[in-house]
Design a protein around this nucleic acid. Structure first.
Length: 303
DNA sequence: AAATCGGGCAACCGCGCGCAG
DNA sequence: CCTGCGCGCGGTTGCCCGATT
């Protein structure tokens, strides 16, 4: 029944790779390619490594055309922008950064960019000013308790609560941070409204931020199921609790908007490829600033 | 000069999905 | 149809090294 085990787990080496192991793996992949990783350890000179470990080592370190130098200012901006759009989908973000791996991007975000955002008073998970976030949570906290005999509150009352999404719609998502600006939530960051991702609002907001609605709205209209209770609905906000339950009963506009946003992204993956979509969005100067470096000059990123 | 601390990064872990057997 | 592996992915851990005391 099924396939045989991929490797003898009791006889595989763990820990840092040696130069000799790297050389064996590189020699093999350069002549045979990277298909069927389970057979690579044996074929590449009896490496005592699991095929999975070989794949990781190759994709994160040995693969040709990888960049090993520091991230550039443009790359930083792109990561922040894409994280605001996609959340922690590192592989998709890395696809937009030639020569960078998802592990590179993830590490850079966790060690540098998230801290930089926090220092500027911006929540790196929601990309919203922290002050606004606290205000929203505070507003929700003073809601009256449920009536006696009423159903117990949902397990995730804050980030998956319909009023929270409704409040969130009124808030703004910060996709860029000015490295030297004072840490003020009112600073002049480029911002997106969650309502920008509502299909119903697409026409009305076209002049403000045309690219995201134009790209995502078509999927909502054409294929995204309406207001489904998507597991990972919180992903749009960075998967806050990691236990992503549904976003409610699906009847709330705010929850539906968040779900539709995620659905739109997933449908993009399936129907046209997310790379193409992101490329279109980023190519629009009104959204990302194109290659003109407008954000760098206007916002003083990293200056 | 030695000890401690903290940041950065490579690698591992565990999960979900698709598919081979 | 069922089982379990291959693969890809995101989250987490642990080690190394430079900075600080």
């Amino acid at each position: 029944m099924g396939r045989p085990p991929c490797c003898d787990k009791a006889n595989v080496k763990k820990g840092p790779w040696t130069a000799e192991e790297d050389a064996k793996l590189l020699a093999y992949t350069s002549t045979h390619g990277t298909g069927n990783w389970t057979s690579v350890p044996q074929r590449a000179g009896r490496l005592k490594r699991c095929g999975k470990s070989c794949r990781l080592r190759y994709t994160n370190y040995l693969r040709p055309n990888l960049k090993h130098e520091n991230f550039t200012q443009e790359e930083e901006e792109l990561i922040v922008t894409l994280h605001a759009m996609l959340g922690s989908r590192w592989s998709l973000i890395a696809n937009q950064l030639p020569g960078r791996t998802d592990n590179d991007v993830k590490n850079y975000w966790n060690t540098k960019l998230s801290k930089k955002l926090r220092q500027r008073g911006i929540d790196p998970i929601t990309h919203r000013p922290i002050a606004d976030l606290m205000q929203s949570i505070g507003t929700l906290a003073i809601r009256p308790p449920p009536a006696a005999g009423a159903a117990p509150p949902p397990c995730l009352p804050v980030f998956h609560d319909a009023p929270y999404f409704a409040a969130l719609q009124q808030q703004q998502v910060v996709t860029h941070v000015d490295a030297d600006a004072p840490a003020s939530p009112d600073s002049q960051h480029l911002q997106l409204n969650w309502s920008d991702f509502l299909a119903d609002d697409a026409a009305g907001h076209g002049a403000d931020a045309p690219a995201p609605q134009a790209a995502l709205g078509q999927y909502q209209e054409g294929s995204a199921p309406a207001a489904t209770a998507v597991v990972g609905g919180g992903r749009a906000f960075g998967d806050v609790d990691g236990a992503s339950a549904g976003v409610g009963d699906g009847t709330d506009d705010g929850a539906g908007a968040a779900s539709a946003f995620i659905d739109a992204i997933l449908d993009c993956d399936k129907e046209m490829g997310v790379d193409q979509l992101i490329a279109e969005m980023l190519a629009d100067p009104a959204y990302y600033g194109g290659g003109g470096g407008s954000f760098s000059s206007e916002l003083g990123w990293g200056c």
